[in-house]
C-alpha cells in the first residue's frame, strides 16, 4: 500500500470514528443546523479519503461510464439521507444514527472515489458538490427562519395557529406535558421511547409544533381533541418551544 492510500485509510478511519462515536456516546443531540454541519464534516473526510484512495489517473481516456453515474448519483442519495425531521428519531436510536452516519460516509467516499476513477479531478468536483450541499443545508434545509415563517407553509398550519386567542402559557404547558407527553419524550423532553424534543424550536415553528400535536404521524398518539383541548395544545407547544 503506497503512502497516498495509507493517508486515505487513516483519514477514513478518523472519519468513521467521528461517525460512530458521537451517537454511541450520546453526544449527537444537536440542533438541525449544527447537525447538518457535523454531517458535512463527515462528508468532507470521506470525500477526501475517496479521492486519495483512487490513484491519480494518467489515462488519455476517461474511465468506465459506471463510475460517472455512481459519482453523480451518490450525492443525491446522501442528501436524501440528510432528511432533517429524521434527526430527532435518530437521536433516540443510537444504532440507527450510526447507520445513517456510516451511510453518509460511504456515499461521500463513493462520490470522491468513483469520480476520480472516471477522470482525474472529477472526484473532487463530485465530492465538493456533495460537501457544498450538506454544508449549505445548515442555512435552510429543515431550518425555518425566526418568526415562524413556516406558518405560511400550509393552510392547515395557519388554521392551527390562529384557532386560539390570547397568549400561550408555557407554565401550564409544562404541567400538561408532564401528564401527557413525558412518558415517551422524557420528563425534561430529552427523549425516551419517543424522540428528544430539545431544540425543537429549530425544527418546527410554534405553529408547526401545534399542527404536529393536533395531527401527528404514527407512532405518536393523537391526543387532540380527546385528551388535549385546543388551548392545551397551544400551551404544550409553547412549553416545547422553550426546551
Amino acid at each position: 500500500m503506497n503512502s497516498r492510500r495509507t493517508t486515505a485509510a487513516v483519514i477514513l478511519a478518523v472519519t468513521v470514528a467521528g461517525a460512530v462515536l458521537p451517537p454511541l456516546l450520546g453526544a449527537a443531540d444537536l440542533p438541525t443546523a449544527q447537525h447538518h454541519l457535523a454531517h458535512s464534516a463527515l462528508i468532507a473526510g470521506a470525500v477526501f479519503a475517496g479521492v486519495l484512495f483512487a490513484l491519480p489517473s494518467r489515462d488519455t481516456q476517461v474511465g468506465h461510464y459506471g463510475w460517472l453515474l455512481t459519482a453523480t448519483l451518490a450525492p443525491i442519495a446522501a442528501m436524501l439521507l440528510m432528511w432533517p425531521s429524521k434527526y430527532t428519531w435518530f437521536e433516540v436510536h443510537p444504532a440507527g444514527h450510526v447507520v445513517e452516519h456510516l451511510g453518509l460516509v460511504g456515499l461521500g467516499f463513493l462520490s470522491g472515489y468513483a469520480g476520480q476513477r472516471y477522470a482525474a479531478g472529477i472526484g473532487w468536483a463530485s465530492g465538493l458538490s456533495l460537501f457544498a450541499m450538506a454544508f449549505a443545508s445548515a442555512w435552510g434545509f429543515g431550518v425555518a427562519p425566526p418568526g415562524a415563517i413556516a406558518a405560511s407553509v400550509s393552510p392547515h398550519a395557519t388554521k392551527a395557529g390562529s384557532a386560539v386567542a390570547g397568549p400561550p402559557d408555557p407554565v401550564r404547558g409544562k404541567t400538561l406535558f408532564a401528564q401527557n407527553c413525558a412518558a415517551c419524550h422524557g420528563s425534561n423532553g430529552g427523549g425516551g421511547q419517543g424522540p428528544s424534543l430539545l431544540h425543537e424550536r429549530e425544527r418546527k415553528s410554534f405553529t408547526l409544533a401545534q399542527q404536529w400535536i393536533i395531527d401527528p404521524a404514527p407512532p405518536m398518539p393523537k391526543l387532540y381533541p380527546a385528551s388535549l383541548s385546543r388551548t392545551d395544545v397551544r400551551d404544550v407547544a409553547a412549553y416545547v418551544e422553550q426546551l
Binding site: 435552510g140 431550518v143 427562519p145 415563517i149 404521524a217
Partner: peptide, 12 residues
Amino acid sequence: LDPTVALDPLWA
C-alpha cells in the same frame, strides 16, 4: 413528503 421539514424561503 414530510411537511414538518420547514425550509427558509430566502435560502430556497
